[in-house]
Design a protein around this nucleic acid. Structure first.
Lengths: 190, 190
DNA sequence: CGTCTATTTGAATGTACTCAAAAGCGGTGG
DNA sequence: CCACCGCTTTTGAGTACATTCAAATAGACG
């Protein structure tokens, strides 16, 4: 019974010991190494990953081959290509590991059974989805209204711990500029 | 018992006649006229609106006074400032009417009671939130990877009915360019 | 070490914006 | 029902933020 996921869960719902047993038995502990893939564009995302250690990232690749980071997923975060997972359609995202990572894997089938057995999980995942909406909406507003340098500062203050472990290139990709341009911006403010 | 909302609901969950009664009794029918506000930045969003007729839009205003459309909400759509509603914090968005609009209002208090009485609604709103995540994620990818003209074409094919009733200025604001620039783009392709 | 990738720097370019002004369009009141 | 007012759309010239391409430098990892 993983303590990180347990704490995360208990922020939102209360389960009995027995229910917790069942909940955790639906997960599989997995590991991937740096640079390995959890999901590739075109494949179908057949489950959710909860990160217990390490760092994943999801990103799309445009037709010119440029990567655009959608999300960084450090410890205590869920990650999935929601579109692919919900609609059973080919993924638009890649998910790979920026560091060696341990995660808990919950297959769609297991999740569906969990929803039937433990309806409180509908609440848990509703709240997660709503928070995700808030995050995306906020990022969209930033992208539409702020210049690149302010988006960078926002990122730093929002994810102070991430900024230390991320290559600058990845941050550039997240805030939506080229690595060259981020480098030039940073050289002007120091 | 509004038929548009009923159909929307029944796509996802099944309620008995009595449950439906209770569900619909939690709503209030409201109207606002073109150019009136449902929510202003700084106020707290105390409920959800389901549009039964007309057209609303949510948008943020940046420090230079420019508007950025976050969502258009025609008939059969829900609209809310999720951040403000969930966290009980001052809204970052304005919501106003582009046309005279009729909507069903569900206060946060009524929704919380509904969750207690009809737990299936957790499922309904979870699915809505997940779809919202998918939409925002898709829009984010577009904004990061496509030039303005393709974002325009995407918008047209995604919302073919909206495009007819919207002033060009509003579309420009949604895809993230100035009205002048949209006008110039369109003049080059015709 | 040596190789591979990330970062920096520079010059040229492009996409989209700003500001200004004219033209078009719709709603409202006389 | 037409005239006017305000807002939207168009058009143009100048500008800015960010990209592209290229090359040099620095860092990380085996």
């Amino acid at each position: 019974m993983n303590s990180i996921l347990l704490q995360n869960l208990q922020k939102h719902i209360v389960l009995t010991e027995k229910e917790l047993q069942y909940f955790f038995s639906s997960f599989e502990v997995k590991n991937i190494k740096k640079r390995e893939f959890l999901l590739r564009e075109g494949n179908i995302s057949r489950g959710l990953a909860f990160i217990t250690n390490g760092l994943l990232r999801s990103y799309s690749v445009d037709k010119n081959g440029f990567e655009h980071v959608i999300q960084f997923a450090p410890e205590d975060w869920w990650v999935v290509d929601m579109y692919s997972f919900v609609k059973d359609q080919p993924a638009r995202l890649f998910i790979d590991a920026l560091e060696n990572t341990e995660y808990l894997w919950l297959s769609k089938m297991n999740l569906q059974n969990l929803y039937l057995e433990l309806p409180q999980l509908e609440h848990y995942f509703r709240v997660l989805a709503e928070n995700s909406v808030i995050t995306y909406q906020n990022r969209l507003i930033n992208n539409l209204s702020l210049p690149a340098l302010e988006r960078y500062h926002n990122f730093c203050s929002q994810y102070p711990s991430l900024i230390q472990s991320l290559p600058q290139k990845q941050v550039a990709s997240y805030i939506g500029v080229t690595p060259e341009f981020l480098s030039k911006m940073l050289s002007t403010i120091k």
